[in-house]
Simulated scan of single mutants.
Amino acid sequence: MMKNIRILLFTDTLCDVNGVSRFIQDISKLAHQKELAFYVVTSTAKICPDLSNVQIIKPLFRTKMPFYPELDLVLPSYKRLKSITEEIDPDVVHISTPGFVGLMGRRIAQKKSIPMLGTYHTDFPAFAYKNMPYKIVKHIGNKVMEYFYRDFKALFVRSEAYKKIVQEDVKFDPENIHTLKAGIDTRKFNTSYKEMGIWQMYGIPETSVKALYVGRFTKEKNFPLLLELWKAYYLQSKNKNIYLIAVGGDLDESLFERYHIKSLGIKRGEELSKIYASSDLFLFPSTTDTLGQVVMEAMSSGLPVLVSDEGGPKTLIGDKQQAGYAINVNDRILWLEKIKVLMENRSLREKHGENGHKIIAEMDIAKSFDAFWEVHMNCNHNVTVL
């Protein structure tokens, strides 16, 4: 049973190729289908999906995010954000990101005494520390997050693994930390999209064994480490009809062609769904992901996964690692061993892939949204039953 409540979500990312954007788009569509008063506001100059409950304002200024060039750092109009808030008149404000849009949304909510909730989508202190490995950077990052979230009624984390991190690093009351149930639109990512002919357009043999990576080509995602691991595996492998396929950025293929590393750039929609379902396994060594949306998409597409044992992705593959392996990124020998096992054992790949597909089938985005709505509803008592 839903209750009539008005929620306004502020986000600095909505039209970008990342898990946070896809999640917010998915719950916006669900809210519209359920005829619930859920609204999203963002500021960007990028092309966005046309959603009736999303408002996009033009930024006054924008530049590339440091260490994250795929994402714009934008300065929106405070006056316009305030006007939108007054028009919607929300019962609850949700701050999805701690950027300028989130900061202004937080300020507006404070001035109007509107209850605030948030989601710890990205571990920014860990992100900063990965790019600038000094303890003071991590310490300052934690203090900034502690200050930012201190007046929030509740805070969502994307996996159980991050409950303790938010409690200890952000000093947030554990009673008000909620795990937002993992969920994706399984209609977009599933085995039915398998189409081996798609590899012809990329110059990749259909008969090859294909390891897939989807994400930013950056240090905090441990992408440089993945390249080194793949090169080491390729050189020792007797079978050279193998490829590492990287989606999500640009790579100078001339440097990696001899190792059969192919960069496909940024992909969206059905093409991305086909790439997932037509690959053989998924490699994702990131240690800064609070959940791992791309890992869920890979599992839903029937791929076995090899992930880091730090952060959210490890929580997806099952207690007994039924869908793949979670390994410490410092143990390169074990990473190479498991890459070898999955690349060379088709029956094992299929077993892990089937298990992963079943796990994600239970993680429907609708269940995630219902839990999200329930917490917001409980933080505001001026509601009526629908």
Results as ranks from 00 to 15, higher is better:
293 Q>G: 08
75 L>E: 15
110 Q>H: 13
291 L>D: 01
234 Y>V: 07
183 G>T: 13
259 Y>N: 09
333 I>N: 13
87 E>I: 14
134 Y>I: 13
344 E>N: 13
78 Y>D: 10
176 N>A: 05
20 V>M: 04
372 F>A: 02
247 V>G: 09
9 L>A: 15
69 P>E: 14
330 N>E: 07
357 H>V: 02
369 F>A: 01
173 D>H: 01
33 Q>R: 07
314 K>F: 04
22 R>V: 11
135 K>W: 08
129 Y>R: 14
105 G>V: 04
231 K>A: 12
261 I>E: 14
76 P>W: 07
39 Y>D: 06
379 C>Q: 08
5 I>M: 13
34 K>R: 15
292 G>M: 02
249 G>P: 06
148 F>M: 09
220 E>F: 00
230 W>V: 00
82 K>Y: 14
138 K>C: 02
318 G>E: 06
184 I>F: 08
136 I>L: 12
308 S>C: 01
354 E>S: 12
340 K>R: 11
296 M>N: 08
140 I>R: 14
159 S>D: 00
264 L>P: 07
311 G>K: 08
55 Q>F: 04
81 L>D: 06
291 L>G: 01
247 V>K: 15
38 F>V: 13
20 V>S: 12
8 L>V: 15
218 T>M: 05
124 F>R: 02
380 N>H: 07
1 M>G: 14
284 F>D: 09
121 H>F: 05
215 G>S: 12
76 P>H: 14
269 G>C: 13
171 K>M: 15
367 K>H: 09
249 G>F: 07
316 L>A: 06
284 F>C: 06
119 T>K: 09
329 V>I: 09
378 N>D: 12
286 S>L: 13
63 T>A: 03
50 D>H: 01
384 T>H: 10
253 E>D: 11
285 P>G: 03
384 T>Q: 10
287 T>V: 03
132 M>A: 10
123 D>T: 00
173 D>V: 01
74 V>M: 06
340 K>Y: 12
32 H>Y: 11
328 N>D: 07
222 N>S: 00
313 P>Y: 11
171 K>P: 00
218 T>G: 15
301 S>Y: 02
364 D>H: 12
190 N>D: 02
200 Q>T: 03
